[in-house]
Design a protein around this nucleic acid. Structure first.
Length: 344
DNA sequence: CGGATTTGACCGGG
DNA sequence: CCCGGTCAAATCCG
């Protein structure tokens, strides 16, 4: 409840901060002769996206769209939308709320939209390693639903699972349902999880669970190549005619379903938002983490990422805005308890 | 060769 | 009995 507002607040703040960050990068780019217009364009888009998201959130808030289920889990936040290739379309029905039936595993859902820019598509991933264990055609849905569970289910007894399903009308949108929290340790302890997982990408981050610091490249991909936008939606009654926002019947030619879905499937809390680096820019490790929402893993309270890793190492050349993520980080904290149902 | 994905069978609730 | 979720054997991929 109240936490929710807090949560949203921080979410919005994160968006804004992110936008600011990117703006800062852009500024740097602009003064750099090596920066390509393409990159600049991209950054600009990102900035716009942040605004967009922030506004969206506000709106969302106002409309009082409530989360579908009563689960306190968290929701993810929109990421950075950018251009869209989505389009209009009809609407179908998918509503779904997770009725709590089985154990009281925390569940929450997200909607992810992926955009491919510059012809580059990449997968979005939420930082966790998932193993697909099934796929089913769902009644009334055009696309099949895929079932994933944590890769470390057996080795670490991590029972987190998620279901991914592409939106009927807008192939660029994926609906993701998360169930259970991750208890495996595959990511950092201080920051939101970000771990490897891109089955589709050609990386091979095989095993590195138990380690900290996820590969930043993943993160980079994540952010730089495609934009993901996650948003929760409001729940509609089961009325047959409601419509979700979107729709299009566009075709996503490109990827084949499989890769597409994989690609897209996960990504949700982009806890990490490394301001990615573009070639010309600060090549170094400038990476700022913005604690988005740490939903999915809220394993225990102790997970408080004590600090964010803001190593602006070399990038300091510009005295521009140096936001303090810590602030919002702090802000986020409150949420934590919230989504920690002690299950585990 | 090992691990992930695929895909149809199987299970169980409604 | 229908439908969504899971299992598991076969298959694929690196």
């Amino acid at each position: 409840m109240e936490n929710a507002s807090n949560w949203e607040k921080s979410t919005i703040a994160n968006e804004l901060i992110q936008g600011m960050e990117v703006a800062r990068q852009l500024k740097f780019h602009l003064s750099s002769s090596t920066s390509s217009p393409e990159t600049q364009q991209r950054l600009l888009q990102r900035i716009l996206s942040s605004y967009d998201n922030a506004l969206l959130l506000l709106n969302w808030n106002e409309s009082s769209a409530v989360q579908p289920q009563a689960v306190p889990a968290t929701v993810s936040v929109p990421h950075s939308p950018v251009s869209a290739d989505g389009s209009p379309g009809g609407s179908k029905d998918h509503y779904q709320d997770v009725s709590k039936k089985r154990k009281a595993l925390p569940t929450w859902r997200d909607q992810v939209r992926i955009y491919s820019e510059n012809g580059v598509e990449s997968s979005a991933d939420d930082g966790y390693s998932w193993r697909k264990y099934g796929q089913k055609d769902i009644l009334g849905a055009t696309y099949p639903r895929s079932y994933y569970r944590c890769t470390y289910r057996n080795t670490q007894s991590c029972y987190a699972t998620k279901q991914v399903q592409r939106s009927d009308n807008d192939p660029a949108v994926f609906e993701i349902n998360y169930k259970g929290k991750h208890t495996c340790l595959q990511a950092t302890n201080s920051v939101p999880p970000a771990t490897p997982e891109n089955q589709e990408l050609k990386h091979d981050n095989h095993h590195y669970h138990l380690h900290q610091q996820p590969p930043s490249d993943v993160l980079l991909n994540f952010k730089s190549n495609l934009r993901v936008e996650t948003e929760d939606f409001e729940k509609k009654e089961a009325s047959s005619s409601f419509s979700f926002p979107y729709g299009i019947k566009n075709l996503t030619n490109d990827g084949q379903p499989s890769s597409f879905s994989q690609l897209v499937n996960e990504n949700l809390m982009g806890n990490f938002s490394p301001s990615f680096i573009s070639p010309a820019t600060s090549g170094s490790s400038y990476f700022s983490v913005s604690p988005y929402q740490m939903n999915s893993f809220g394993q225990f309270p102790d997970t408080d990422h004590n600090e964010i890793i803001s190593a602006n190492t070399s990038t300091t050349n510009s005295p521009i805005l140096d936001l303090d993520f810590h602030i919002d980080h702090v802000d986020l904290d409150p949420n934590f308890p919230f989504d920690t149902p002690g299950f585990f």
